[in-house]
Write a protein that binds this DNA or RNA. Sequence first.
DNA 1: ATTTTAACTAAACAATCGTTTAGTTATTGG
DNA 2: CCAATAACTAAACGATTGTTTAGTTAAAAT
Lengths: 188, 188
Amino acid sequence: MARKKEYNEEVVIEKAMHLLWKNGYETTSMQMLEKEMGINKFSIYSSFGSKTGVLLESIKCYRKKIKVITDKLLKSNNGIKGIKQYFYDFLLFSKDHNDFVRGCLVTNTANELYDNSDSKVTSQLSTFTNEIRNLFLNNLKQEVNLTEKERSEQADYFIVSIFGLASASKVFNKSQLHIFIENIFKEE
Amino acid sequence: MARKKEYNEEVVIEKAMHLLWKNGYETTSMQMLEKEMGINKFSIYSSFGSKTGVLLESIKCYRKKIKVITDKLLKSNNGIKGIKQYFYDFLLFSKDHNDFVRGCLVTNTANELYDNSDSKVTSQLSTFTNEIRNLFLNNLKQEVNLTEKERSEQADYFIVSIFGLASASKVFNKSQLHIFIENIFKEE
DNA sequence: ATTTTAACTAAACAATCGTTTAGTTATTGG
DNA sequence: CCAATAACTAAACGATTGTTTAGTTAAAAT
């Protein structure tokens, strides 16, 4: 018995996600979000509650989007080789249509966080990190010659490495990043 | 023929540096800097010109402070082993007196930068990064069995790794970070 | 002792931040 | 057709951002 929304929440949050990904949370203002999402502040607040709400939904959207490469990892059954491929897949995924390297929205957000941060955000971040680590662990189970402890340690090694790669991707060049990956997966 | 400054610029910039290191540039306001530095906004502006000026001087101060471990690396002549030691030294250096992990001021700042950033800051950052890479290269020259190309690639590998470690140090625990370092330096 | 000059205090600056609200428009159910 | 309700526009909110400025205080030079 009332007016219909003129926008689709999933559509506008994807636009917000792209802006936050490229631009960072702190340096993105509500004014910029308004413009990018194509809707009024009123609509943003009625749909998402707050700027943090926009971030939280954007992270959810990001996780849906990155499923393209996490699902590929999940479905792979070639152990460490699949994990290495994920590192390269991530680098491609991190670039926008103009080849601008945006890193990882989750990692970027984590890097922006200091003491004062919102707990819903931090828990979203650690959930995501844990999910990726579990994917690594899953693939490491395909390496039959490894002990449980070795698999756990390798998973930690890889999760710290991919976090580092995501951060470094915004600073170093392609060649340096590829050298990094090749050395991470250099086998003894 | 005029009044004397009641503060020492090196002293107050060190205080600013500690706050920016712990708290990040964007999330630290002039009000907070006033309080931490113990001087008025007027004094901050007359001494450092702008908030960015405070950051630039803080980075210089940071580089002086980190010389404790970079000099150790410079004086070492045990090749890759010395570089590995630098990674561990950095982790200790990154913690404050309450064991709070602050990462690296330079890396933190780099992670905060997006398109719009000040060029003086970015050039400070890349200069520092280059300096560390050169230190790595220097130690790699002590590995006589490596070719020039291999040394250069290893230097890239290590500089991306230490950048990644600095970012990751604020998110992951001690055990995970040590596993990372051990694997980075695992020899074939 | 007086003048000069710079460092100080404290208030104000315009701009922008995230958020809210008053008023209007459009849609739907009765 | 009308009443009800939610989505819209647009302006304003108070707070805080980085920066500046007027007025006072103190120290050195003549």
